[in-house]
């Protein structure tokens, strides 16, 4: 198990490293130069050069990368071109908002998938089973941003229950989190429903039943624990999808998180910011997946001994 985790940790670092290199190289390939953009249209060559020195873009690319990595290890990702502040502090301000949104959305989607998926698997062919299929198809066919717009339309413009944007406490989290969650629900729901169905046919479920255990306990404790394993895998795979959904939702709801920063970096070639965001998102993916590996070992004792 330890060996396995070390191996995974090594893989994780390799992934983050590869993404850092790729993004770095890609950004340096682009035609626009941040110093020129920062300087504006009628800046003198001297001004541009001083900006280039400030950003470090006048050095050879390998040198730039070495400096970037060196600084990154000390927590310094450079200065945002657009905001003129250290990237760490720009991201630091936005990060809590994004984490809150991402966590709420994940929690919400898992709750929906669990509630609906288990109920559907327990009663195949019932209205809730059919309903779960409709929910899954609708969630897949509905772009997150449109769902966000519809939610704004209904709950904020028409009914005025929730704010249409910004980050003003929990009420401002409800709509964006719902939009993100509903996009995640279909996969989780489908995988859970099908694994739950096959688990409910297992011998040990029959054993539990033959010993008089209550149906609810059989479904929600005996079977669900086994059936949740594939769902854990899916959540791990979908972390990137979750982050993507969060970025989109932030754009729709003008929510001041990482996604807003990312979109704002679009027109300004804010290299340091984009780099930090890409690396950060890879780190989140990798960390969450390591966490899921550990969770796996907690849920399934058979994993603990092997590998």
């Amino acid at each position: 198990m330890t060996r396995y985790l070390l191996n995974r940790l090594f893989q994780a670092i390799a992934v983050v490293w590869a993404i850092a290199v790729t993004v770095f190289v890609l950004l340096r390939l682009s035609p626009g130069d941040p110093a020129t953009i920062r300087g504006g249209l009628d800046a003198s060559p001297e001004v541009i050069e001083s900006y280039a020195r400030e950003f470090g873009t006048d050095r050879p690319i390998v040198d730039q990368f070495a400096r970037f990595v060196g600084h990154a290890f000390t927590g310094d990702f450079g200065t945002s071109v657009r905001y003129g502040e250290p990237v760490t502090s720009v991201v630091g301000q936005a990060l809590p908002h994004t984490l809150a949104l991402g966590a709420t959305a994940l929690l919400l989607s898992v709750s929906i998938a669990l509630a609906v998926g288990v109920a559907a698997a327990r009663r195949p062919g019932s209205w809730i089973d059919a309903g779960s299929s409709v929910l899954a198809a609708a969630g897949q066919a509905m772009p997150t941003f449109w769902l966000g717009l519809v939610l704004i339309q209904v709950f904020s413009v028409q009914l005025g229950i929730f704010p249409s944007g910004g980050a003003t406490g929990f009420s401002s989290l409800v709509l964006p989190a719902t939009a993100v969650a509903l996009a995640m629900v279909p996969t989780q729901l489908r995988v859970l429903r099908s694994s739950m169905r096959s688990t409910l046919g297992e011998d040990y479920v029959r054993t539990a039943r033959s010993f008089g255990l209550r149906e609810r306990r059989i479904s929600y404790v005996y079977a669900l624990r086994n059936a949740s394993l594939p769902v854990l895998t899916v959540i791990g795979v979908d972390v990137g999808y979750l982050l993507g959904g969060v970025i989109v939702a932030e754009a729709v709801f003008n929510y001041p998180g990482i996604g807003q920063l990312a979109i704002s970096a679009l027109g300004t070639r804010d290299y340091p910011l984009i780099q930090a965001l890409a690396i950060g998102s890879a780190a989140v993916f990798v960390l969450l997946n390591l966490l899921i590996d550990l969770l796996y070992a907690v849920v399934d004792p058979r994993v603990r001994v092997s590998g």
Binding site: L26, V239, G240, G244, G259, A278, S281, A282
Partner: peptide
């Protein structure tokens, strides 16, 4: 998988 497609697109 580690990169959201929106972020890839932004890059």
């Amino acid at each position: 998988l580690a990169l959201p497609y929106v972020l890839v697109a932004i890059v």
